[in-house]
């Protein structure tokens, strides 16, 4: 483990040492800092807090927010909630994956630029179907608009 990483972990540790029920909060901070939950970080915390690593992994795999694998720099979230489903979210999601050339079971593009995720509702049902790229919400998305939205987004986020 690099010194830099250890320093980052140290700040998280100090923040939560005295708080009850800190496993989820630690994982959330790791997720925020690294974009995923690095395995070695889990062992590091497990040693220092005397909590078995299995508890961390148990929690991390239970909640959909945590990822044990690295993700792309930008996250595309396609909503597949009821309202979005009824208004045609499935073809939109297909088109996104198709445009990014993602194979079956793949979520992240080869250049690590985008990761595509699904969510069961982000509470923006009046705008259905909804696609979120990082923090920007695109509303009433049609399958044929997907290409343009993604290209525009890529244009603004060149590395």
């Amino acid at each position: 483990m690099t010194e830099k990483m250890e320093k980052k972990l140290g700040t998280i540790l100090r923040k939560y040492k005295r708080e009850e029920g800190n496993v989820i909060s630690i994982l959330q901070d790791l997720q925020k800092k690294f974009g995923h939950v690095p395995r070695e970080a889990v062992y590091w915390f497990s040693d220092r807090l005397n909590i078995p690593a299995s508890s961390f992994f148990g929690v991390a795999t239970f909640y959909s927010q945590f990822h044990l694998k690295p993700r792309g720099r930008h996250i595309i979230t396609a909503c597949l909630g009821t309202a979005c489903h009824v208004r045609g979210a499935v073809p939109v999601e297909h088109r996104i994956r198709e445009h990014l050339a993602l194979g079956k079971g793949e979520d992240t593009t080869k250049d690590m630029h985008y990761t595509v995720e699904n969510v069961a509702c982000m509470g923006a049902c009046s705008l259905a179907p909804v696609v979120r790229i990082d923090k920007k919400i695109h509303s009433n998305v049609l399958p044929e608009e997907v290409e343009q939205i993604l290209e525009e987004d890529r244009g603004t986020k060149k590395r």
């Binding site: 909630g81 009821t82 309202a83 979005c84 489903h85 069961a120 509702c121 509470g123 923006a124 049902c125």
Partner: peptide
Amino acid sequence: DEGDPGAF
């Protein structure tokens, strides 16, 4: 924790 899809 408003998880119901379709409720906001």
